[in-house]
Nucleic acid binder design. Structure first.
Lengths: 338, 338
DNA sequence: TTGTAAGCGTTATCAC
DNA sequence: GTGATAACGCTTACAA
């Protein structure tokens, strides 16, 4: 079924059909009726490809994510998707599995598809200048509006939406201090990643600002995985020099920490206190009163898409960054229970 | 940048450039060199739209999923995505949020995009003939190879890949029987959904086959949510007539069950036994020896994509259904601990 | 109010 | 070996 077929069956020219399809220009009431009838009968839908080619504009946006099987990105994806189809756009999805060459390949593909814009969470930290340059080159070639999501690169020239990692960690740490703790520790995330560093920085700043000082003995360098956090917590216990309270740098870190703590029958709020970054559904369900820094992930996806659309509509806007502030959910694990 | 620009810069005709792009037909060694050089210099990439239009074939496949923020589908998505880009295809992604009208809209969009094939998990059970007909109509219109994933509809005419829900539940229940339990209960899933019914059926069959009989008092009709499972378990406890062991119909059901059990300080393997359907990462981490029916989800995505590609390559193949058998992970919760 | 025809960026079929 | 040229399915001046 093509527009030509419709035109023939309705006994008119292609251009007339096109006019009713696009509600553009004048079409006689009778002709319109006839054409609409034929379209309905045949279930004709115009080819988006042909349309884009002719109009020289695409209604497709690319979404490149590093971990499709991570709940965080699943929720972001849901938010993006919601706005995408509210605006009758089409989403091309790529999962890079945190692999730079897959990322490069995805970007080439999106260029071939002539996407209208792109939401991207880069594969890893582009800390090294060489890698950063490589990404920049690929994105410049793409030459469309781009929005960075959740992971910042050095001196980005693109719009971005991020969580306030510094602020979230700062608030959490501050809450621990206000709860009266003096010996406060941290299991950091991967410090080669931007948000890992930011959270660590927030932690330290809160300590300094309170007049306490950061004790190196209480700093455990993790990597955002459950396993590593578990091992570090065991070391912490074995060291015989436990902090009173610990800041946990992400949800997986929280899991590893709790696992190790529970194994030796330590009790939250009795033997040790903590605050984590991000919600862990299981803790809630198991009635562990676990305090954490909360983020509204689905909404992050929605906002991301809106920012991208703004940029598409107004390419000359100054660069924008949106920092979503995190909020604290205190459920008890941050302080000694009476 | 278009093929024309490349042709001009290389001092040849478009058709010659096209030949080197596609490695088709003869091209003089010198001419080829020159053209390749221009392409490299300009970072030219041909338009996929124009290409598809001209070739009359698309390299795009549609993926329609009901819950992007559900880990299960996140993992499936990862598997699909892996095969998609190994084959240089493009994936258009839609999230229906279990909403039939969003699903219909997504299918129309995919038709406009002239996708080459489609992987679909329908929004809900199309139990009612009217709804089933509506889906069939939309899919027939699409007129491309289709693969149903995880959720079966009545008398499907399409290929499908599903888990062996019946078998998984059967095995789990059998394990409870072999552990010596006589009073065996179930919290079912949503029985209006196919897999809910299948799991229930597997449970009942295992009981019959063992010579026991299903006691209606031990059948709790849930809906696959944590909340409902929690409430039912509380009822179960309050009833004063607890079964010895319970089969839990999905991961959320397991969470609700465990929450209720733990609240009243019942101990797994001491006061009550159980087996769940699907892994719950938190249980593992908290060292609850939780037994469950395991599924390899990422691989399901990979297999789905392979089946779709087979179908695209050979449209006349007889209809195929792939049932992935589940396996049992016994970690202790299924039997009384010594 | 409608039809004709050129053009969007490719590929494919011819001649040369 | 290479270059015109006609598709592919649509939109959009412009003419009628």
């Amino acid at each position: 079924m093509t527009i030509k077929d419709i035109a023939d069956r309705a006994g008119v020219a292609k251009s007339t059909v096109s006019r009713v399809l696009n509600n553009s220009g004048y079409v006689g009431i009778e002709t319109r009726k006839k054409i609409e009838q034929v379209i309905a009968e045949t279930n004709y839908l115009p080819s988006a490809m042909a349309r884009s080619l002719s109009k020289q504009e695409s209604r497709t946006i690319g979404v490149v994510i590093p971990e499709a099987d991570n709940t965080f990105f699943g929720e972001v994806l849901r938010g993006i998707s919601e706005v995408v189809d509210k605006n009758n756009l089409t989403m091309i999805f790529c999962n890079t599995e945190n692999n730079q060459s897959k990322e490069q390949k995805a970007l080439r593909m999106l260029q071939e598809q002539r996407v209208r814009g792109l939401i991207l969470t880069p594969t890893a930290d582009y800390g090294s200048p060489k890698e950063a340059r490589r990404l920049k080159t690929a994105l410049d070639r793409l030459n469309v509006p781009i929005l960075l999501l959740d992971r910042k690169v050095q001196n980005p020239q693109w719009d971005g939406i991020y969580y306030d990692n510094f602020g979230g960690a700062y608030q959490a740490t501050e809450a621990l201090i206000q709860a009266g703790h003096k010996k406060i520790g941290i299991i950091t995330g991967d410090l080669s990643q931007f948000h890992g560093r930011e959270r660590f920085r927030g932690f330290k700043q809160a300590i300094y600002d309170s007049g306490l000082s950061v004790d190196p003995a209480y700093i455990y360098e993790g990597d955002f995985t459950t396993q590593k956090a578990y091992e570090l917590t065991r070391q912490m216990i074995a060291s015989g020099n436990m902090p009173q309270a610990v800041f946990l740098s992400n949800n997986l870190t929280s899991l590893g920490f709790i696992k190790a703590i529970f194994e030796v029958k330590m009790r939250l709020g009795k033997d040790i206190c903590c605050i984590g970054f991000d919600y862990v559904d299981a803790f809630d369900i198991l009635n562990i009163g676990f305090s954490y820094v909360e983020r509204d992930t689905i909404n992050m996806g929605r906002m991301a898409m809106h920012m991208l659309m703004d940029r598409i509509a107004q390419p000359d806007l100054p660069r924008r960054e949106h920092i979503i502030s995190a909020s604290l959910m205190l459920r008890g694990s941050e302080r000694w229970s009476e």
